[in-house]
Simulated assay, not measured.
Amino acid sequence: MPLPHRHRWLPALLLTCLSPLATAGEAELRAELAVLMRQLDGLERQVEHSAVLATDGYTPNGSRYHFDYVRLREDMHRIRGGIQDYLTPTRAQPRDPVELRGDYRRESRDKGTP
């Protein structure tokens, strides 16, 4: 059903009004991701500190599982890379995401880096 002559400007007005809202959403998302990057910086510092404490105070106490800091660092690096790729895209096509490894518990027989 066509719009009456006096209401033909309505779609143009709606597009004009809604366009800044879409831009504001993008700006808000970028701001939230920037905050997340700062929080990730703090989390990485805590992980490094915890890894040092775990290495310095490591005594085999018979515990079967230990926290796998290496795997956590790798996943945090992937998360950081994904956020940076979104904030500063290098190409227009989406990339295939790399799965996080997860499962940060490893058995004590693994004598690798804590």
Score class of each variant (00 low, 15 high):
residue 111 K to A: 09
residue 30 R to A: 13
residue 60 P to G: 09
residue 15 L to F: 12
residue 77 H to I: 09
residue 47 V to Q: 03
residue 99 E to M: 07
residue 16 T to W: 15
residue 108 S to M: 04
residue 111 K to C: 05
residue 46 Q to L: 03
residue 41 D to H: 02
residue 88 T to H: 14
residue 27 A to C: 11
residue 105 R to A: 09
residue 43 L to H: 12
residue 97 P to T: 09
residue 7 H to C: 06
residue 77 H to Q: 14
residue 61 N to D: 12
residue 96 D to A: 04
residue 32 E to H: 15
residue 114 P to W: 10
residue 66 H to M: 08
residue 12 A to M: 10
residue 35 V to F: 12
residue 40 L to K: 02
residue 44 E to W: 00
residue 59 T to F: 15
residue 63 S to T: 14
residue 3 L to K: 07
residue 1 M to S: 08
residue 12 A to Y: 14
residue 31 A to R: 10
residue 33 L to G: 04
residue 54 A to H: 12
residue 38 R to T: 08
residue 105 R to H: 04
residue 77 H to M: 10
residue 91 R to T: 05
residue 26 E to Y: 08
residue 59 T to S: 14
residue 65 Y to V: 11
residue 66 H to N: 07
residue 68 D to F: 12
residue 1 M to F: 11
residue 42 G to Q: 00
residue 58 Y to T: 12
residue 97 P to E: 02
residue 3 L to M: 05
residue 56 D to Q: 13
residue 66 H to S: 04
residue 50 S to N: 10
residue 48 E to C: 06
residue 93 Q to T: 05
residue 15 L to H: 13
residue 106 R to Y: 02
residue 41 D to W: 00
residue 81 G to E: 13
residue 33 L to I: 02
residue 91 R to F: 03
residue 62 G to P: 06
residue 33 L to D: 00
residue 74 E to C: 06
residue 108 S to P: 02
residue 18 L to G: 14
residue 29 L to N: 04
residue 46 Q to N: 11
residue 70 V to D: 02
residue 65 Y to M: 09
residue 13 L to N: 01
residue 35 V to R: 14
residue 105 R to M: 06
residue 83 I to L: 11
residue 99 E to I: 04
residue 84 Q to W: 06
residue 88 T to Y: 12
residue 76 M to E: 04
residue 114 P to R: 06
residue 42 G to E: 01
residue 78 R to C: 00
residue 83 I to A: 11
residue 38 R to Q: 06
residue 106 R to D: 00
residue 1 M to W: 04
residue 86 Y to T: 01
residue 99 E to R: 13
residue 11 P to A: 13
residue 49 H to R: 09
residue 88 T to C: 09
residue 84 Q to H: 07
residue 80 R to L: 06
residue 73 R to A: 11
residue 38 R to E: 11
residue 79 I to A: 11
residue 55 T to S: 13
residue 35 V to Y: 09
residue 50 S to W: 01
residue 22 A to R: 09
residue 58 Y to W: 13
residue 21 L to D: 05
